[in-house]
């Protein structure tokens, strides 16, 4: 089962295309990072997945074959929107009561227990909580719905480092306990590896790179060697990024087979951050993995 599957998904807001021809499939049981620069279409894609937006073109389904926004899908997909919109004038207790009454599946005891553990006072007004606590409250309300898919839009953007750690610890512990799938967007690339095991890179409304993070890292290497041989080596590999110094060149390449390096060349692992930045820096690079064909998607799903 794919938790999110799109084909040719496109979304236009008045005259601008927020998403264009976006085709992807996210297998279940993953923690997926959706990265890309601001304005890449991350929020739009997530909104389409939770039923807050209707596609201009193309299709999107969640949790197998459910239409986002349908009652069946809403019951099983929880969403924490960017900037954590909650009713700021309500007390925490009332906010929990609102969430409970808006859902037929809601574990109030679990939510209260979690809030106690987080030391969020139930009588405090939501608007008086710190940013980190508001995020934790929103997350707690989502987790109490026992979702099969949790969608988080820029959950870390406005949190300080400690709050980030606590927030993601809450997500990760809940995943460990219940095994639901997570998709979260971020425009910060560092530390993604810690949380995510699957990556989608969006740029200008299109999917640039997508896959299991281990596979992506294993499929790329940073080659360094004499600058005069760099073009020759470059022909051998699919080069994502070339950086040249006076005598020395570094090529970020996709490694497809067992190609022997010429002597004098060294190969090193690529960090996820390097990899993502390299792709984002050159959105037109012709060696992009590109949208996967349905066949490839099937293969990538098989375990």
């Amino acid at each position: 089962m794919n938790v999110v599957e799109t084909s040719g998904l496109a979304k236009r807001y008045r005259s601008t295309w927020a998403l264009r021809d976006c085709t992807l499939a996210v297998p279940a049981g993953r923690i997926v990072a959706l990265v890309g620069p601001n304005g890449a279409g991350k929020t739009t894609l997530l909104h389409c997945a939770v039923g807050l937006c209707t596609a201009t073109n193309g299709n999107i389904t969640v949790l197998g074959d459910l239409a986002p926004g349908s009652l069946d899908a809403l019951e099983r997909v929880a969403f924490v929107a960017q900037d954590v919109p909650l009713y700021k004038y309500l007390s925490v207790r009332s906010m929990v009561a609102v969430a409970r009454n808006l859902n037929s599946r809601f574990d109030q005891a679990q939510a209260e227990e979690r809030l106690r553990a987080l030391e969020i006072p139930p009588d405090r007004k939501v608007g008086k909580l710190s940013g980190g606590q508001q995020a934790q409250l929103a997350l707690t309300l989502s987790l109490a719905r026992d979702p099969d898919l949790l969608v988080l839009d820029e959950p870390l953007a406005r949190l300080d480092p400690l709050a980030r750690h606590d927030f993601m610890a809450l997500v990760m512990a809940a995943v460990a306990a219940s095994g639901f799938s997570v998709i979260f967007s971020s425009h910060v690339v560092s530390e993604l590896e810690r949380f995510a095991d699957y990556l989608i890179v969006l740029a200008r409304g299109r999917v640039q790179m997508l896959g299991d993070i281990d596979d992506l890292l294993a499929g790329h290497a940073m080659l360094s060697g004499p600058v005069e041989e760099s073009d020759l080596v470059g022909e051998q590999f699919a080069v994502v990024q070339t950086r040249k110094a006076a005598r020395h060149a570094e090529l970020l390449v996709r490694t497809t087979g067992n190609s022997e390096l010429p002597s004098g060349w060294e190969s090193d692992h690529v960090s996820l951050e390097e990899l993502v930045l390299a792709y984002l820096r050159d959105p037109s690079a012709s060696m992009l993995p590109g949208p996967l064909t349905p066949d490839e998607l099937e293969v990538s799903e098989v375990t």
Binding site: A169, L170, A176, F195, D197
Partner: peptide, 16 residues
């Protein structure tokens, strides 16, 4: 336990 490692380090359970 996986859950405890995950909660204390804030990392992906799959990693543990």
């Amino acid at each position: 336990r996986v859950k405890d490692v995950v909660a204390s380090l804030s990392i992906n359970p799959n990693t543990v």
